[in-house]
Nucleic acid binder design. Structure first.
Lengths: 209, 209
DNA sequence: CATCAATCTTTACATTGTAAAGATAAAAGA
DNA sequence: TCTTTTATCTTTACAATGTAAAGATTGATG
């Protein structure tokens, strides 16, 4: 009976892989320190030595998520299709629902952790470049750029969040959508003109008196 | 020594109030069944008799949140200022950060619960009316209306989520914003024109009237 | 080869959700 | 009015979790 060696040798990576496996399978709520340790085949407290505590582990995992998202967006930026980045962003959330959700669950993460801070910052650079800005940090941008960046990210992030939360299900049930979020995405970006001429798009049409 | 009576008499309401107090103070992660019971001054398992389990309690609390949001939006619809609803929505999230976050934390909620389903559905009616639709359910709307609704809610919800998650802090640190999210909101809605002419795929400005 | 430091396990404890059984009091029925 | 029933709340119990502390094992360092 050759039991596994006392020293795993590559536990850090193995733990992150085990965590992502559980995440894909059971969502963020399945990520307990002990369950991850079980999945990785080590003792309950082994991960803590590599990540400090649970929020440390989750933060490193979220950092990986941001890195992949950045890579996805970089790749999509080379696609000639005008709205390729939009669909790529949403597809990323669809393909990695647990990871995407985790990335923005600030109560379980520690954004001061270096890995996560760096990865998050890199995503800012990509986002700024996507609106034609040369700034690397939002703090160095003008107000118009900030508006564009905020608009883009809010719209996409809101869409993905609502989608993953199941809030768009009543919409997707509509026959016109055929259950495909990307249909909804296409009629949303760019926003369609108001049904009737009226005051500016966003502001509410006066609730038909 | 007159100890509290064995039967509270109005425990259901008291528990919800206690829960909201903890929510305001410590965020959604402070909402444990036992902590709520402590705050309400009853035994640890008393709340379970009224709400079934933790997700039941949180769902009823989230339902209250949706009701208040609906009321807020109804009130804002009567405000003559064109973008009053937008600012009202964000202000609601700012004033009730814990509650707003909880409302969309689907892993801790049970959307099949009647209270939550009803409250959530009511918010759809308000949202549909805000884009001039007369439908009460998204399932009965045409694709253009769905696009408008999705656009509005995604943009606002995304903005609020990023804001409450602290993701917009780098933006708000910019002197032009002066730390006020509503400044950012104003330059975001409607989105500003691109700084320079160039291939700017996403943030297409909605057709100016 | 001896020592050290890193890595992993064992043990321990407080906290949590929830099930089960018991206590209390209000309501209902005689 | 008195008994029975039912709703409400408490006590007890148990498995699971995060994390701290101490011990075991092994690779690295001198």
């Amino acid at each position: 009976m050759s039991r596994p060696p006392y020293h795993h040798g590559n536990l850090r990576a193995a733990v992150l892989e085990a965590a992502e496996r559980l995440l894909d399978q059971g969502g963020p709520s399945a990520l307990s320190l002990r369950a991850i340790a079980r999945e990785a085949g080590v003792s309950a407290t082994a991960p803590a030595h590599h990540f400090g505590d649970l929020s440390g582990l989750l933060s490193d995992l979220a950092a990986i998520g941001f890195q992949r998202l950045v890579e996805t967006m970089r790749r999509a930026a080379t696609d000639p299709a005008p709205r390729a980045p939009v669909h790529a962003y949403v597809r990323f959330a669809q393909d990695n629902p647990g990871l995407y959700t985790l990335m923005f669950r600030s109560d379980r993460l520690d954004y001061r952790r270096e890995s996560l801070a760096a990865a998050s910052q890199a995503s800012w650079a990509v986002l700024l470049r996507s609106v034609g800005s040369e700034a690397r940090m939002p703090a160095e941008s003008d107000l118009a750029t900030l508006g564009q960046v905020t608009f883009r990210w809010s719209l996409l992030h809101g869409f993905c969040t609502l989608l993953l939360d199941g809030q768009l299900r009543p919409l997707l049930a509509n026959p016109a959508c055929n259950g495909d979020p990307h249909v909804l995405l296409d009629v949303m970006v760019p926003p369609p003109a108001p049904v009737r001429p009226g005051p500016v798009p966003i502001p509410t049409r006066p609730p038909s008196p």
